[in-house]
């Protein structure tokens, strides 16, 4: 690409972002709706599975670990293909008519990030459970209280897990392209739009969306970094400051 084309594309992209292009914001809004819904479902499904795997020793626990790890490494296009087969007219859920809808994209992204939520939250819960289990038992807490305390004690690590899962969902293209179909005003999200606009030579809009994605990635990583900072040191610093003032 000649330098002038690149600079033109960048300046146009910035113009599009700053002027609130309606097509751009529609795509961004749908991307967020799909990925946040998938994230919520992945948390609802994944966190209890992870806690069960930590607390209970049940037959097939190790096998479940292997399955989760395998699913985490599954290419998004394969997940997309499986969801496509499930939702296609001749598939078991074809009657619901969900293919090429945002719901299908939510299902695909949920399938993609739930193993991430399970696999990444497992060591956090396991570490805290190992530390707290006996003491909570000794202090007379009932199982439901123990569960609440375990989640509360794991909150900092869980924020990182949630941010990582959201990052994976929003940056995903293969699965949503297959089950969403990239239909304008209906299932077009940031990643599928970037691929299509680039192919069509509409670099400004593609770049504008790319900039939004990069900024989002920066935001997510900054948030994750802040949460994983040693909170003890942070708190010590705060208390020291309070003590001095």
């Amino acid at each position: 690409m000649p330098t002038s084309t690149l600079t033109d594309a960048i300046s146009q992209a910035v113009h599009i972002i700053l002027n609130g292009d309606s097509a751009l914001w529609e795509i961004i809004a749908l991307s967020f709706r799909v990925s946040l819904s998938a994230l919520l479902l992945a948390i609802i499904i994944g966190i209890p599975i992870s806690i069960l795997m930590v607390i209970y020793q049940f037959p097939g626990r190790r096998f479940l670990h292997i399955i989760v790890d395998t699913l985490m490494a599954l290419p998004p296009v394969v997940v997309g293909l499986l969801v496509y087969l499930l939702l296609s007219r001749n598939g078991p859920l074809g009657i619901m008519g969900l293919l090429y809808t945002p719901t299908a994209m939510i299902i695909a992204q949920t399938a993609l990030i739930t193993p991430i939520v399970v696999a990444l939250s497992f060591p956090i819960f396991a570490q805290n459970w190992l530390r707290l289990n006996e003491q909570l038992h000794m202090l007379g807490f009932k199982p439901r209280h123990c569960l609440r305390i375990l989640i509360a004690e794991s909150r900092i690590g869980l924020v990182t897990v949630i941010l990582a899962a959201f990052g994976r969902a929003i940056a995903e293209i293969g699965a949503v392209m297959i089950v969403g179909g990239n239909i304008e005003h209906h299932t077009r999200v940031m990643t599928t739009a970037i691929a299509m606009e680039t192919r069509q030579g509409n670099l400004a809009l593609a770049l504008a969306l790319g900039i939004v994605l990069i900024l989002l990635a920066l935001l997510i990583n900054t948030a994750a970094h802040l949460f994983t900072m040693d909170s003890r040191l942070l708190r010590k610093a705060i208390f020291k400051k309070e003590g001095n003032s």
Binding site: R131, L132, E134, Q135, M138, L139, I149, A152, E153, S231
Partner: peptide
Amino acid sequence: ITLVPPHAVLLN
């Protein structure tokens, strides 16, 4: 009965 371990287990 209450058991206090060698390294106190306290909540954050």
